[in-house]
Design a protein around this nucleic acid. Structure first.
Lengths: 221, 221
DNA sequence: ATTATCTTGCACATTGTTGTGCAAGATCGC
DNA sequence: GCGATCTTGCACAACAATGTGCAAGATAAT
């Protein structure tokens, strides 16, 4: 048939619409991180829009979440995957360090991971990452760098949990980039079995963009 | 007035009713640990009863959860509170060890703690515990036993998270008592900054009742 | 300026869950 | 066995959240 009636005037997508779409995604992330069961009302409000408008951009709540998950997993994977794992200890430090650069995405993905149907989906997408981690950790156990009292597979899960744990605490306290960076590296390596002073040696220079102040912990508690 | 009409025959509570009440609580724990949003349907089914019957024992879903929380917090507190904290390292080991003895209650409480309105309630009940932990950890930091790169208050939270993390993983894998015992002690102490070999020295004899086999990890993955 | 696109507000159907009322039946205590 | 207590099944109201339809208004593109 070819309905080639010469398209009247396809006209571009409006700029504010695209911007609102991003607002919604961003709002959804920050809201769902706090309460994974938050309704479309809350998300729309956070985005400064109407519930009806949100449904104009995403046909379903699940579609919205699916998109968050997809971009989150993509960014995390893209951030971690080129991994040079000569020294398992350095590798874990690198992973922790890079993870800290994606805190918001990591946290969103992690929080959603607890909920029912999403956990399976997330596990599926993040499996390659977990395999890399498990390989690195197992190598570390084999080479005697890490603790010997637990199989690599289990230790990998514990390290993963420790990292998420730190990320959670770090954002809760609003740590600076340098603080969070150091905390996640030392804690994951400690969990891997290193003494904290050994672990501290693997804290490289934190990524640029955040010139942390002098006193680190003085301003809190 | 004294309506002393000589109570006709108050007759005791029926035994099966009391038993069903316990069934419901137990079922609620195991169901809510998996899905904190599980409905009364699921709980009743797990208990082998009807939804209507559950409402005969608990006027409200929140009342049911409140009772789980209360007994959970009570048991945890009763298990941990008499704490002899001469050596912070030994104290953490003791806490981890005792915690492992209350896994099911700890996990139930922890999982519920993530959800909205309950988190505040739980934090309130468990605050004395957290204060003890924070005191012990701060002492450990001050005495140089623990890592020096983080204030005691934050380290306490990290250790708490590590413990819950291990408990989670341990029950997920169905570890034996001896395995879980050792795992939680070494992991928490590692998180506190000890090297794993130092931490392993604080694994006392596991509590009686479980004669673990010879090979510990061979039967899994 | 004109037009297509986007937003908004409201009304509405749908669904799932909570909690209640009541009558019939099962079960336990005595 | 008798009687009180407990359970069950069903029906029903209340409520909250999801998703849709439509018309009027705002806004960006050309």
């Amino acid at each position: 048939m070819m309905s080639s009636v010469s398209r009247p005037a396809p006209r571009q997508v409006r700029r504010d619409a695209l911007l609102n779409r991003l607002s919604i995604l961003q709002a959804a992330v920050s809201v769902l991180c706090v309460d994974p069961d938050a309704g479309m009302d809350a998300i729309a409000a956070e985005a400064g829009l109407t519930r009806r408008t949100v449904y104009g951009h995403f046909p379903t709540r699940d579609h919205l979440i699916e998109e968050i998950l997809a971009t989150g997993a993509t960014r995390i994977a893209a951030s971690l995957l080129p991994l040079d794992d000569t020294d398992p200890r350095a590798a874990i430090a690198t992973i922790g360090s890079r993870l800290w650069g994606e805190v918001s995405h990591v946290r969103a993905t992690a929080v959603l991971a607890v909920r029912g149907p999403y956990s399976a989906r997330i596990a599926e997408v993040l499996r390659p990452l977990r395999e890399v981690l498990e390989r690195v950790v197992t190598a570390g156990v084999a080479s005697g760098s890490f603790r010997q009292d637990v199989p690599g597979a289990i230790l990998a899960r514990l390290i993963e949990g420790a990292a998420l744990n730190v990320l959670d605490e770090a954002t809760r306290l609003g740590l600076t980039s340098a603080e969070g960076h150091r905390l996640v590296v030392i804690t994951t390596l400690s969990c891997a079995g290193l003494g904290w002073e050994d672990a501290a040696r693997y804290v490289g220079t934190p990524p640029p963009g955040d010139a942390a102040s002098g006193g680190e912990w003085e301003n809190r508690a």
